[in-house]
Simulated scan of single mutants.
Amino acid sequence: MAYDIEQVIKMSEDELDRLFSDSESGEIPDGEAKGTAIIAPGAGYNHAIAQIVNYFAWQGKIFDAKSGTLKNEITPFGLRAILARVYKGDSWFDQKPCIVLDYSETSVVAQRIRDEIRKVADKQYLGKVYWGKKQLIHFFLQF
Rank of each mutant, 00 (worst) to 15 (best):
T36Q: 09
K88W: 02
G26L: 06
S67W: 02
D122H: 07
I82L: 15
Y55P: 11
N54V: 04
Y3E: 02
L136H: 12
Q135R: 15
I99A: 10
A50L: 04
Y125L: 11
D94Q: 06
G132R: 10
A40T: 13
F143E: 08
G42S: 05
K123Q: 14
A43W: 13
F63L: 12
D22C: 06
G42E: 06
Q142G: 05
I74R: 09
L126F: 02
R112D: 13
R85V: 09
D115V: 05
G35W: 00
R18G: 04
G44N: 10
S67Q: 11
L101M: 14
V108Y: 05
L136N: 13
G42I: 08
I49W: 08
K66E: 11
K96Q: 13
L16S: 01
V8I: 14
I62C: 06
A84S: 09
E32P: 01
A110K: 15
L79E: 11
P41T: 03
A84D: 07
T36K: 13
G132K: 10
Y125C: 10
G68E: 00
N54Q: 09
V100F: 00
I117A: 13
Q142F: 01
E116D: 10
S12M: 06
L136I: 14
L136A: 15
R118D: 04
E73H: 01
F140T: 03
K133M: 13
L101W: 02
Y45C: 07
Q124Y: 03
Q111C: 14
L70F: 09
K119M: 15
A121W: 03
R112S: 15
L16T: 00
K123V: 07
R114L: 14
V108H: 08
R18C: 01
I28F: 01
V86Q: 02
